[in-house]
Design a protein around this nucleic acid. Sequence first.
DNA 1: AAACTGTCGATAATCTATTATCATATTCAG
DNA 2: CTGAATATGATAATAGATTATCGACAGTTT
Lengths: 124, 124
Amino acid sequence: MERDTPQRRAIREVLVSAGRPMSPDEVLDAGKVRVEGLGIATVYRNLKLLTKSGWLCPVDLPGEPTRYEVSGKPHHHHFLCRECDRAFEIEDCPGTQKFHVPSGFRVETHDVVLYGVCASCKGR
Amino acid sequence: MERDTPQRRAIREVLVSAGRPMSPDEVLDAGKVRVEGLGIATVYRNLKLLTKSGWLCPVDLPGEPTRYEVSGKPHHHHFLCRECDRAFEIEDCPGTQKFHVPSGFRVETHDVVLYGVCASCKGR
DNA sequence: AAACTGTCGATAATCTATTATCATATTCAG
DNA sequence: CTGAATATGATAATAGATTATCGACAGTTT
């Protein structure tokens, strides 16, 4: 049976309160504030576990390590800040009807990634 | 000075004739047809060299090894076939004006990746 | 309290992609 | 044609991300 440990709880809290996709390293750093001595292995273990249970879903951005975000959100995409390397959620999506794919191709899903500078980096 | 070797020529020809972004392994396989004994190290060396010279540009797709395509094409995006794992070029782009980024964020570039089944895989 | 089971942290091991090494071979200017 | 510069292929090494291992520990169940 799955137990409720301080580490696991901290990892969940970190991801909920961040409200954006986080890499294992980001989760580790933020998690250490809540649980002293938190280890990277525990982070990976729990990210995997929470993903398998459906509570998290992986977010792959080009050339970046996999990030994880809390599941259940409506269709959306992501923004990657070039300064701080943090990913953010972008609501809404105009769809992909306007793309001209070669004839005979069937489009099933799509990803959009916006790159730029986030508000807090821009302010500095 | 840069020399003209059969291997380098083959790698260039492979990328031009494919007309789509290719991974080092794909380039190796296609290159072996033209130059017997072509090695993966040579492929990596030349992809790097041709990228540095501006003749190629890297194409990163989420969770995929870097692919390379011939430079100089107008703004476009890519389609990844889930069956054969080949990437294709998608012309045109409706732009990203319709995305609502959080206030204070500055969008500089964007990537769109369409996923589905390509014509040749669909036909089978 | 003893046995169980799931979890933890440290760290070794693995995996994949890419680069470095090095002996041999090729290219091309003179 | 000849030699110095450059390239090649095999393979070892590296790098980054992730997983496996293992002894210790904690909360539960007998």
